[in-house]
Design a protein around this nucleic acid. Structure first.
Length: 475
RNA sequence: GUCACCAUCGUCUAUCCGGUUAGGACGGCGGCCUCUCAAGCCGCUAAGACGGGUUCAAAUCCCGUUGGUGACGCCA
């Protein structure tokens, strides 16, 4: 398949949503798989709803996901003359005509059709009137009245629509601006697009666009209509389903490669493989094996997917990525003069206990606050800071104070010796120690925690725990 | 209403130009491991919407029904 050219054409009327993101991913992958080109076109002709900030946001999300584009961006608002030159061609060749009907008159036609149980549509009132530019308001396509429009969709297979189902669509509005279908055809042709990958809400536009291609005598590209993404309840994705925009997932601490892998796997498959690197996606994604049915978005699986990528990420990259989240959590200042040197052991200790960057950063907190600021889980403290527990803590304080250097290996040896020398079991000593260190029964290996904390802080925490008294009135 | 599209475990999917105990993954449940929480490992759970055909044989092909989605704009 030579010279594959695809595109992604968002309207800057909102942030990039996961549905759009997946469409972009498929389109991008197809181009990259075949060594072709991928273009980005901003469909900003809806002047009322289009906003520059949304264009910026969409671009930022594309970059974050790792979807680069070839050549400059195309903005539809800058191409009005181009579109009109094509409309003029159609007028000259007799494939289009001027229409003087007002929107109100057309609406009345639709109403009449609906009343008769027919499909609401324009009735071709001005089709044979031969109106000139001065007499017309908008320009309509003189669409064929009979025959079938057939195309072979990359995901849905053969789709056929009867020409009689379509009416004479408007190509140029009364204000001189092209309509969506006209602009899309001109743009896709001008940009040399060979494969139009888009959302499945466009299937019914496709026969109309094919009519324009044919009227213009242009080659018709291949189409691939990818289904929508549904919410976890299989209803249309909406606000009540939580995060929908890519930026929200970014802010929540998702890894871009995890989102891409998950989204690619939604509606596409490569055997039983669940996780894909970008390289694997490019290698395997050939535009086949796309599922024609809509897929429900599953946050639980996304989280699992993210946790997997989090674990396998090279440590230096992980440290880099967790930095903004540590700052956001207000923990950055607490890392001291060598923040990266401190972040590294924290990431090693907690990465497999977190499912995203935000929870990972938050899990550092107990090790970064001072002994007096450590928040105790009341249940754990009451259960483990008992007479026996405090006895162990007192003895361990003495033991640890002699450990030098205070590193993980020596600490572990000292701890094991204490347990063995006193004929104890490790699990008798560990719970009070862990609770004293972490504030609750959780976290990484005890010796690593203590090594990270350092001797003074470790001893301070053991001391504080020995002074613990259950809150009054607590049952 | 009309037209188009869709239909395998709760979810994502494999199998689908016919023949399988319908496979994997997430989740859930149980177990192992273990100082905790995770992770990891093991096991269990659970599906061809329904009805007709065609055929020796249908999840797979055909028709219908039901259900879902989209479209029917001088929005994109």
């Amino acid at each position: 398949m030579a010279d594959v050219v695809t595109r992604f054409a968002p309207s800057p009327t909102g942030h990039l949503h996961i549905g759009g993101a997946r469409t972009a991913i498929f389109s991008w992958l197809l181009a990259r798989h075949y060594g072709g080109r991928f273009h980005l076109r901003i469909e900003d002709t809806d002047l009322l709803r289009s906003k520059k900030e949304y264009t910026d946001s969409i671009l930022a999300s594309m970059r974050w996901l790792g979807l680069d584009w070839d050549d400059d961006l195309t903005y539809q608002t800058e191409r009005t003359d181009l579109y009109n030159s094509y409309v003029d061609k159609l007028l000259e060749s007799g494939h289009a005509y001027w229409c003087s009907c007002t929107p109100e008159e057309v609406e009345a036609m639709r109403e009449r059709a609906r009343a008769q149980g027919l499909k609401p549509r324009y009735d071709g009132h001005c089709r044979e009137l031969g109106l000139g530019p001065g007499e017309g308001r908008c320009v309509r396509l003189k669409a064929p009245r009979t025959g079938k429009i057939v195309f072979d969709d990359m995901v849905k297979g053969r789709i056929a629509v009867d020409a009689s189902e379509l009416d004479d669509m408007v190509l140029r509005r009364a204000d001189g601006m092209p309509t969506y279908n006209m602009a899309v055809v001109v743009d896709d042709h001008e940009m040399g697009v060979t494969h139009v990958i888009r959302g499945d809400d466009h299937v019914s536009n496709t026969p109309r666009q094919i009519l324009i291609y044919e009227a213009l005598g242009l080659p018709v590209p291949r189409f691939g209509h990818v289904p929508m993404i549904l919410g976890p309840d299989r209803q249309k994705l909406s606000k009540r389903h939580g995060a929908r925009a890519v930026v929200e997932y970014q802010r929540d601490g998702l890894l871009p490669q995890a989102l891409v892998s998950y989204l690619a796997r939604l509606g596409w498959s490569h055997g039983d493989q669940e996780l894909f690197s970008m390289e694997e996606l490019i290698h395997f994604f050939d535009g086949k094996n796309l599922n024609p049915a809509a897929a429900a978005f599953d946050p639980a699986k996304l989280e699992w997917c993210n946790a997997r990528f989090l674990r396998d990420l090279p440590l230096n990259q992980l440290v880099e990525m967790v930095e903004p989240f540590a700052k956001e959590a207000g923990l950055w200042e607490r890392l001291g003069p060598d923040p990266y040197g401190r972040l590294t052991p924290l990431c090693i200790m907690f990465r497999e206990r977190a499912s995203n960057l935000a929870t990972l950063a938050e899990s550092f907190r107990p090790l970064l606050v001072g002994a007096s600021e450590l928040i105790y889980n009341i249940k754990d403290a009451n259960k483990h800071f008992t007479g026996q527990g405090k006895t162990h803590l007192a003895a361990l304080s003495a033991v640890f104070s002699k450990v030098e250097p205070f590193d993980a290996g020596n600490i572990e040896a000292a701890l094991n010796a204490y347990v063995a020398d006193n004929g104890l079991k490790f699990k008798e000593v560990a719970p009070p120690l862990r609770t004293a260190l972490m504030g609750f029964m959780g976290g990484s290996h005890l010796n690593e925690i203590m090594a990270f904390l350092g001797k003074p802080e470790t001893l301070a925490r053991l001391a504080r725990a020995q002074d613990y008294t259950p809150p009054a009135g607590d049952a």
